[in-house]
Write a protein that binds this DNA or RNA. Structure first.
Lengths: 188, 188
DNA sequence: TTAAATGTATACCGATCTGTTTACCTTGTA
DNA sequence: TACAAGGTAAACAGATCGGTATACATTTAA
């Protein structure tokens, strides 16, 4: 058994290409070429391109949220601090050379129908991120954790889009300073 | 001379289809069929699909910003009120049945490279919207119009994405309540 | 050792893509 | 009336799309 399975190779390559070039713009032939894998192997693991897209989105969700939580907890020591360090984690992400916006916002843009499976996965990802924020808000003792999580979530979305579309790499800083107002308000 | 030129027919149809289904997912054949126009006519007016996309984005920018400014000014009587009524205008837009997110965010997602002409147009559109906000902020006498415009702009982006990806149709209300904090702070 | 599973490489399929060409028709105007 | 501009309809070109089939090689485990 190899250290990295063929399936993982395929998903990793597809993830990179879908993220940087888009889903429709990335063909199967390109994926197998860069993954160093035959077409038959790909279709042995995934019965269609759409299933491969779903698999990459599921993996992205898992890895992204794990990284986000780890970084947020590394950069803040208390729940209250973490409600703000989540913006620092985003700031670091935005600064990365490979940053190409939020893969789930991008997926929602390409798979516009609300009932498209890929759009649904995107919405679920957003919900899970907000659940994490709400958990932090509750832990910090916010008087309205639900509202605070909605507010901070909206600021996160805004800073990601601003960074991606307009290339504003300081948007996370701005969002953090705005978030501080609502955190203080909720924890007064 | 017909009331609506062929060129306008094509752009209007392309706009609708690109917006609701995406750019790569919408083929030329579909556009000419729905526009009721021959392929030769389309390529007589636009030398490539990419030029058609650029033309539709330019038109969308113009129409969107005109509508936004008109609505914002209808819903607010003073510059200060308009810094908030711009969120009401967005709220009404989000409620529309045809709402499919921000066409420029969608374009940036499909044309990921920062130097892609379509991505550049998207960034310019965002800059022009923020210029409008900054103008209102200056008119209202904000002590730091630049910062206030960045803040309100970030809230707008956030509420659009939240409405589109997660289907949260109340996000403009939330964003408006958050914006009020910063407007008050800047106009104290 | 041998057989099954899993891989590669590549040809191929039908559909669809952007874009061109050809032939014909309609319409406004000189 | 005649001509030029701009339109339609449809065949066509060449590339690429997602996906399948074939033939052969390699690995794995009974």
């Amino acid at each position: 058994m190899p250290a990295i399975s063929k399936r993982e190779q395929i998903v990793a390559t597809a993830l990179k290409l879908f993220y940087q070039d888009g889903f429709n713009a990335t063909g199967i032939d390109r994926i197998i070429k860069e993954a160093g894998v035959s077409k038959k192997t790909l279709y042995n693991h995934f019965k269609s391109k759409d299933e491969l897209i779903l698999a990459t989105l599921r993996q992205r969700d898992e890895v992204f949220r794990n990284t986000l939580m780890r970084e947020t907890e590394r950069l803040g020591n208390t729940a209250r601090e973490r409600l703000l360090s989540i913006f620092d984690a985003h700031g670091n992400w935005i600064q990365e050379k490979s940053f190409s916006g939020c893969m789930f916002i991008n997926a929602a843009a390409e798979f516009a129908a609300l009932d498209d499976p890929n759009h649904i996965i995107a919405a679920e990802h957003k919900r899970l991120v907000r659940d994490y924020i709400r958990g932090l808000a509750e832990e910090a003792g916010a008087n309205d954790a639900e509202t605070l999580s909605l507010q901070l979530n909206l600021l996160l979305e805004g800073c990601i889009v601003d960074a991606y579309v307009s290339g504003n790499k300081d948007s996370a800083q701005l969002a953090k300073s705005m978030a501080a107002v609502f955190v203080e308000q909720a924890l007064a």
